[in-house]
Amino acid sequence: PQGPKMPQLVTEFLLCDPDELQLQTKISARLQQEQTSWRKHGNTSTFRLLCLMADQTLLSIVEWARTSIFFRQLKVSDQMKLLYSCWSELLILDIISRQVLYGKEGSLLLVTGEEVHFSNIPFHAGPTLYSLIQRGLKLVEKLHILKVDRQEFACVKFLILFNPDVKDLEEHQFVERVHEQAKGALLEYTLCNLGHFTHLLLCLSELRSLSTLAEDYLCCRNLSGEMPCNNLLIEMLHAKSA
């Protein structure tokens, strides 16, 4: 529903969204550069590549938040608290929303624009990863049925980022207000279709549970020394367990 029905705030949220094609080009270039150097040292693996992709996506999420309306008004200390609490949700949402908006059935669309057919994902990947993929697919399907669009995903990202339950925020009231405003904009955008709105919010609790599972999975791989070090992904994982 473009045009007069679009709430002003939804338009503002959409303007903050990075351009998908630019992101694709940037991350692909970075991955290629890294792979070339890995090949020289003979230590390339699919898992390392996925970690790098996740790390680069995380960087783009931080950049999105940093330059976004409302968030840029916060002090860095509050910005950090909010991001530490929701980085994995935003990361999973990024992957899921890409499937819902642009993906094809039976394959996983990566941030680089490449498609990986599910038959190429190894069954021996382990029970946690297997469960993550299965539950992720179910969530994609639910959001697909709900026909969630770019506008709604843009609102949802702000709902997640401005979490008033985060402890020790200096500007707690401001965060709470933005959260309520984002919720209001989403409800207005869904044309006060409460059923749709409620289903969408239910999907968010599934997203949160998925992100916890994803963090556990990454922590395990990290403990067994499989994660590349010195990147944002690792820093976020450490901050959570600290």
Binding site: R66, N231, A242
Partner: peptide, 18 residues
């Protein structure tokens, strides 16, 4: 613990005007 937060702080503190 502070040192662990270095990268995120750096990214958020970045000054675009420079």
């Amino acid at each position: 613990k502070k040192k662990d937060n270095a990268l995120l702080r750096y990214l958020l503190d970045k000054d675009d005007t420079v």
